[in-house]
Design a protein around this nucleic acid. Structure first.
Length: 675
DNA sequence: CAGTGAGCGAGCTTCCGCTTGACTT
């Protein structure tokens, strides 16, 4: 028997189908060893030596793997082909080879002597057979890069968090390389919105008619050769934001312009141009969360839960990936599907392959795609454990992946410009689809804008001009989807963590959701200000990118890992000492509710606890009176006239109920269900 | 996820990244 170890149980099941029964395929189910949760686990005095333990929930798995390894003629470590996968392979190899009494020196040679390491990038029979032909040894440089990453994150997280407990007097607080910068993005965006000064401006549009009676709308764009539109670019913490407005400041100016326009109009130009549009790349974790979040209105967490199910049932490839690569088999299947269903003209001339932009992408998996192209979303209906949301998500994944192999869509866009005798220029833009191409599969997202057929010299008449008021908009708040996009662009976090980063900063109450938008709390602002003041490097956007550069040096074998960690740790620990001694305790404002404490007569205030707000006496700890905080809304109970308060179900879903519960049982899911 | 609901919190917490399971607090 030959034992192959992979990370995911689903992958193990698939490989079992591909290979004959000489092979026994088992899953590690992720990492099997880690730093202990209850202590730092890094010996700073001795070259940052890590202390690894087997987490309790992994003990039985490791035992089973050990037993199987004993019986096996050969052990093949086939974990994912990336930094984390290489480390998992090494940890497994070490655990299976070395008993706990033995020193850890020179284990690596021993592991490599006993075990083979293979990698493959797609889960197909041919790819696995190929991989088995070319076993190698464990790449300790990659493993060391992972160890440096792990140790660095632990040092930051496990020293900054206790500092926050002390200086902000809240025992559940946390900080880390990823979560703290994610929170900062949201904090900085909110401040940019607060700084933003809204300006109102006006636009003028007019209805025109052609000589044969067709009517269309055009916008005023210029006078005397000078455009009305102007844009200003303002710098944000994480990029640039462009605000566009016109130079027409108020209604009076708009009316003056309209009065000044003098007929007749001459047709200046009719420009048509053909525009090709190519299909978007197949989904990665990040783009799936963005797109499904937008189109289906689901949270990142929910999307990943749904995708997990689709993956486990074998309907899609792995859903935690940063790769846009598609297997050759899939390309063939998609192309022949399109040809059969839609005809030759709908296939792209050449197979389309996509390249990943990100420098830190590890490309251990394929893009997210259906495993079986002939399985359509409607075929999933009624399947065990499959709900409507699974089907809708699968439909998005199927269409996006198949559409990559379809031909470009072709649009004809037309721009018509007209000028009055006194040089006012109006412009109308139209766009008509000429050839659907990939949109046949993905679906149309924009409607045709039709303009009348005109050619130079034709006459047009102005029917009526109307002014419209607008206001400039501040940069938008982040949503889960746009935050994930920003994190990915800045190379902060990994596909397997995007959803949990959001959960963490919500749980810590640094951020709250208002509708779809992420808004910082007082606590989030205070923690961010504190960290930015004392740890500007870690809180900066390029920090992770710089760290990745250093990890690459380790992975290329240019440097051993301990000096790299030291180079980071020395200045960091200086900042830490400085903050410990210099930083004042941060006081968070606690709002009085205008009510006296029934026990001691002191002021009652709203306090923030681990699980949210609660009401307590301002004389704590001498007085320990406390009760639950209830947020009221501006509606009254239709049954008894009592106040309506915000409540939560056991599963944390929000609903609205009467304060007089249980004597009054009125409840509603939505605000507008209450009269 | 189904179809609504109870009184905690104010001494032992916290990181990031890989993967799913689940008799307990």
């Amino acid at each position: 028997m030959k034992l192959i170890i992979v990370e995911s149980p689903t992958k193990a099941k698939t490989l079992t189908r591909f290979l004959d029964d000489v092979y026994r395929i088992e899953a590690s189910v992720g990492h099997v060893r880690d730093l202990p949760k209850s202590e730092l686990g890094v010996d700073i005095e001795h070259d940052f030596a890590p202390k690894y333990i087997i987490p309790r929930n992994k003990k039985t798995r490791v035992k089973e793997l050990k037993n199987l390894a004993k019986q096996a003629d050969e052990v093949i470590l086939a974990t994912d082909p990336d930094r984390e996968g290489e480390a998992i392979a090494w940890h497994i190899g070490t655990l299976l080879t070395v008993d706990s009494q033995q020193s850890t020196a020179n284990n690596d040679d021993l592991v490599n002597h006993r075990y083979k390491r293979i990698v493959f990038h797609e889960i197909t029979k041919s790819a696995i057979l190929e991989a088995l032909q070319y076993p190698r040894s464990i790449d300790m440089r990659l493993v060391d890069a992972q160890q440096a990453r792990r140790i660095l994150d632990r040092l930051v997280g496990y020293t900054l968090s206790p500092l926050l407990w002390k200086k902000l007097s809240r025992r559940w607080l946390s900080a880390g390389r990823v979560q703290s910068v994610a929170t900062r993005l949201i904090v900085e965006r909110e401040r940019a919105r607060a700084r933003f000064v809204k300006e109102s401006y006006w636009t003028i549009s007019a209805e025109f008619s052609t000589s044969d009676g067709h009517r269309f709308i055009a916008d005023l764009v210029a006078y005397n050769g000078v455009p009305y539109e102007q844009s200003v670019t303002i710098p944000l913490f994480d990029g640039l934001y462009t605000v566009t407005k016109t130079t027409i400041p108020d209604e009076a100016s708009a009316k003056r312009i309209i009065d000044d326009i003098q007929a007749p109009f001459t047709l200046l130009s009719v420009d048509t141009k053909d525009v090709r549009r190519s299909p978007p790349p197949p989904y990665t974790t990040s783009s799936l969360q963005q797109d499904a979040g937008r189109r289906l209105g689901l949270s990142s967490k929910k999307i990943m839960q749904l995708a997990q199910r689709l993956y486990e049932e074998g309907y899609i490839t792995y859903h935690r990936t940063d790769s846009v690569n598609l297997s050759n088999q899939f390309l063939r299947d998609a192309r022949s599907y399109i040809q059969k269903t839609h005809g030759d003209q709908f296939i792209s001339p050449e197979p389309r392959r996509y390249a990943t932009k990100s420098k830190v992408a590890q490309e251990a998996h394929e893009a997210i795609r259906p495993t079986n192209i002939s399985l359509r979303s409607k075929d999933l209906e009624g399947k065990e454990g499959i709900q409507q949301d699974h089907i809708r998500l699968y439909d998005l994944i199927w269409k996006r992946a198949v559409a990559t192999q379809a031909s470009d869509a072709l649009f004809r866009s037309t721009t018509i410009r007209m000028q009055s005798v006194n040089t006012y220029v109006f412009q109308a833009k139209g766009s008509i689809i000429q050839f659907e191409g990939y949109l046949k599969i993905l679906g149309r997202d924009v409607a045709d804008v039709l303009l009348p057929q005109l050619s130079q010299g034709d006459s047009v008449q102005l029917v009526a001009a109307t002014p419209t008021e607008h206001a400039t908009n501040p940069p938008p708040r982040y949503t889960e989807a746009s935050l994930v996009k920003a994190l990915e662009e800045k190379d902060i976090g990994r596909p397997s963590t995007y959803a949990s980063i959001i959960s963490t900063i919500l749980e810590r109450q640094y951020v709250q959701k208002e509708e779809k938008a992420l808004v910082p709390t007082d606590l989030g602002n205070a923690v961010t200000d504190f960290l930015v003041q004392y740890f500007p490097d870690i809180m900066s956007l390029p920090f992770t990118a710089i760290m990745e550069e250093l990890l690459d040096q380790i992975a290329r074998g240019e440097r051993p890992w301990p000096p790299v960690v030291r180079e980071f740790y020395l200045p960091f620990s200086k900042d830490l000492d400085h903050a410990q001694t210099v930083a004042e305790k941060v006081k968070l404002s606690e709002e009085k509710i205008g009510e006296q404490c029934p026990e001691c007569g002191g002021d009652l205030v709203v306090k923030l606890g681990r699980y949210g707000k609660f009401i307590a006496c301002s004389n704590f700890p001498s007085c320990s009176y406390r009760r639950q905080y209830r947020e009221t809304i501006d509606r009254v109970c239709p049954k008894c006239g009592g106040a309506i308060v915000v409540k939560r179900t056991k599963t944390k879903r929000m609903f609205f109920g009467c304060v007089n519960y249980p004597s009054c049982d009125f409840a509603a899911w939505k605000k507008d269900q209450i009269p």
